[in-house]
Design a protein around this nucleic acid. Structure first.
Lengths: 246, 246
DNA sequence: ACACGTTCTACCATTGAACGGAAGGCTCCT
DNA sequence: AGGAGCCTTCCGTTCAATGGTAGAACGTGT
């Protein structure tokens, strides 16, 4: 139902163009972009030109397309997580100082944990790569901490549709994770990237006692001392919550 | 030249909607958004609904409009400054550790310095608010450091159009700043926000020896020790440049 | 040096998607 | 109960969006 051929609105197309960049890729050739966005070349060209006139995209010489600085600026200035990140940052720095561990902050989006902020451990190489990264709920402590404090109906819906493509984890196992985390008030899970690390996360509640985020650390197995880590995280999480208001 | 009345394309309107959020504001009523974007209410409504179906915006109950988490995610994953920030982060952490000062990283956009990353001084409150913030070239050390290492023509063009609305600074003063910074290899300027602080910044050169960013610190006057700060910054800047390649 | 493949850019007649005024709901005041 | 302010939906009109086509600009292999 488009102006002519292929059933989509201008907005659909704009979205597809922005979404066309694969994770971590900052620059695309026009042809490849048109390909990925499933647009006729001439249409892609026109859209990209229009968007780059406004600075949302950057159309370099020779058809190189990047996201525009202006877009990055606008989105980061008015990000929906701005208040959360601002409230959390000082506490995350405290945790990093006191515990010397990787600290991260995640929110729930769909059935995934979306990492909105992260401080890397002093001396470790930058794992900042994963800011704006996603992980399925059931493989991260942040995900489990978030889901375990959601309303019953949402948890039920989640477990209903749960399916682990690798087949390693069943819904019952996840149910157990959630129950345990809900009871303990924190979630702990073996690291996904590095099997010798553990993740520990606690929920962050806003003024209305709704779970809006999870605050977590990733620690090497050798330094795994729950009695030190959990109280620190919980204290910080309460601090963040108080700062947030609502 | 729009489908009917008021001379702008769909893309123009989408851009206006995203740009409608004032700095630091994360949430807008539909009516206010329509007003700011100069769109008829029904058109604004249609656009917002379309965009929120794709997750670029978030249309809450009661007409509350926010930027979508998905948009934030996409932009941060594929940000044009991703490589720069990743390369710089470890070095910025080093600076923060060793000097215990606020560290920031800026790029030149138009005649302004756009801050793309910032680490706050240990113990100080979050000044992270200003990530994605802009400042005119001539009032920040980062801006001067950036501009002083640009090609002659660009500097000329900049000085040509330079005008300080407050009337405090003349083009000649700025010319002096730039010359000094170019000669010394670093820029130092009195703080704008707090008059008792100083900013010091050095250019970051990529493999082709093009100035792509400025690395800077903001220090209290009492701790202003150039002989310690400048070498540390320059070393870090070289490290970043090496990491960047090109 | 030439021909070929690939990519970017520009043009323009056709047509259906975008437009927005108006009317209907809804909530929250007074 | 009435009104003000907001969100949402509907639908006939109209012109902006569309994309095939063609040409320009590289780069590459023979």
């Amino acid at each position: 139902m488009a102006n002519s051929a292929s059933g989509d609105s201008v907005v659909d197309r704009v979205v597809r163009v922005i979404e066309a960049f694969p994770e971590g890729v900052t620059s695309l050739q026009l042809t490849e972009l048109a390909d990925r966005a499933e647009l006729p070349l001439s249409s892609a060209h026109r859209l990209v030109r229009q968007l780059s006139e406004h600075g949302l995209l950057d159309l370099g010489a020779g058809g190189t397309v990047r996201l525009g600085l202006r877009l990055w600026e606008l989105v980061n200035r008015n990000s929906p997580t701005l208040a959360l990140r601002q409230a959390a940052m000082p506490f995350m720095e405290d945790i990093q100082q006191v515990l010397n561990q990787n600290v991260n902050l995640a929110v729930l989006d769909g059935w995934e944990a979306l990492f909105v902020e992260r401080l890397s451990r002093r001396g470790s190489v930058a794992n900042r790569a994963r800011i704006a990264g996603r992980m399925p709920v059931h493989i991260t402590s942040a995900g489990v901490a978030l889901m375990s404090h959601q309303p019953r109906e949402l948890q039920a819906e989640y477990l209903e549709q749960f399916h682990d493509p690798s087949g390693k984890v069943t819904a019952d196992v996840v149910r157990h994770y959630l129950a345990e985390a809900a009871q303990q008030g924190y979630a702990q899970l073996a690291g996904v990237v590095d099997p010798d690390t553990w993740g520990i996360a606690v929920p962050v509640l806003n003024g209305k006692r709704r779970t809006v985020a999870a605050l977590g650390v990733v620690v090497p197995l050798a330094e795994m001392r729950l009695q030190a880590l959990v109280p620190a995280l919980q204290t910080a999480a309460r601090g963040i919550g108080r700062q947030l208001g609502d």
